[in-house]
């Protein structure tokens, strides 16, 4: 495949997505231009909006970075939402042990590590079932998403419910002292984006500059071939899943510590799936993770202004994101068919 010609795909995809979304917008009274303006720049118009966008981008970055490793190993980790959820639940279990006067930083570190471990373990179940029982990781992953959701719902409505009352808004909030500190009057915590960026850099390095990364990619391309060349392909695939699960679990723990300050019923809230969209869009190429995550975070965070300023439902931004991914996949397929012809 020719790289130059392949680069046309994103351009075509963006144009098609804009066109299709404009058609959908035509059903409303709003002008498409104003809608796109709000969608693309709404999240950037004030410090607190940027802060909210960053807090959405960070867990998304973790998920997308993790997925670029599992995709490289040829694994479709659709269980990422569940891994994120379990990470959140387990970190909450750690944080609930905190008593006034405890060392806050120690609890943060243990909670984040526990979340990452839990996410990795949850992904490990998928990987082991895939390797040793030949069940598709897609179905195991999706199935475990429901189990994870049920687990977190059970904790919210059962053992950890508010005194006397089970509430959709989640468990009783953690003590203020445990909340990750925010910058100024915004809701952005320095630690969250910092952790996300460090993890992205680490994954990038692992995948593209180490022998391990090369082996992961090789086993993703062809398991039998890489095995013949002496690469422990099965082990690399399982490790790639574990790494992805750890990133997702870490994202879940960060949501508990920095965003919700409680365990909420819908902790993963589609961030893992949005990470999948990003991964699909960029063919899981880790070099493009950061810019695309930013784009998706901007679109999603900005969309809350749509009903207020234009009386359009905010889900139109999801429409655009969906069209973008679809158009990209089609464009890529189309170009590669033409190449072959």
């Amino acid at each position: 495949m020719n790289n130059l010609r392949l680069a046309r795909a994103p351009l075509i995809a963006i144009l098609v997505a804009l066109l299709m979304t404009t058609i959908v917008l035509a059903t409303t009274d709003a002008e498409a231009i104003s809608a796109f303006t709000v969608m693309f720049s709404g999240a950037l118009t004030s410090p607190s909006r940027v802060a909210d966008m960053v807090m959405l981008a960070a867990p998304l970055l973790l998920c997308a970075a993790g997925l670029s490793i599992s995709f490289a190993a040829g694994q479709y980790n659709l269980g990422i939402e569940g891994q994120m959820t379990v990470g959140g639940v387990i970190s909450m279990a750690v944080l609930r042990q905190y008593a006034d006067g405890g060392n806050v930083a120690v609890y943060w570190i243990i909670a984040l590590l526990a979340g990452a471990l839990a996410g990795a373990a949850w992904a490990g179940v998928v990987a082991l079932l895939k390797q040793y029982t030949r069940v598709s990781e897609i179905f195991v992953g999706l199935g475990l998403n429901f189990v994870a959701l049920g687990f977190s719902l059970y904790m919210v409505f059962g053992p950890w419910k508010r005194p006397g009352v089970a509430s959709m808004s989640g468990t009783e909030p953690l003590p203020d002292s445990l909340w990750l500190p925010v910058i100024g009057t915004t809701r952005v915590t320095l630690i969250t984006p910092l952790v996300a960026v460090i993890v992205l850099a680490l994954f990038w390095f692992l995948l593209r500059a180490t022998q391990w990364g090369l082996e992961v990619r090789a086993s993703g391309l062809s398991q039998p071939a890489s095995r013949r060349l002496g690469v422990p392909a099965v082990r690399r695939m399982i490790q790639a899943m574990l790494v992805c699960g750890a990133a997702a679990g870490l994202a879940g723990a960060l949501q508990v510590l920095g965003v919700y300050h409680a365990l909420v019923p819908n902790l993963a809230s589609g961030i893992g799936f949005m990470g999948l969209l990003v991964a699909l869009l960029i063919n899981a190429d880790i070099r493009f993770v950061a810019p695309l995550v930013l784009l998706f975070a901007v679109l999603t965070a900005g969309s809350i202004q749509l009903p207020l300023s234009l009386s359009i439902d905010s889900s139109i931004s999801g429409v655009f994101q969906g069209f973008l991914v679809l158009a990209m996949i089609v464009a890529r397929a189309f170009i590669s068919i033409k190449e072959r012809a």
């Binding site: 409303t28 799936f273 949005m274 969209l277 009903p307 009386s311 439902d313 889900s315 429409v319 969906g322």
Partner: peptide, 13 residues
């Protein structure tokens, strides 16, 4: 619905 959220969209405000 994340992928094709148009279908889930309520008639807008």
């Amino acid at each position: 619905s994340l992928i094709i959220s148009a279908c889930g969209a309520q008639p807008s405000a």
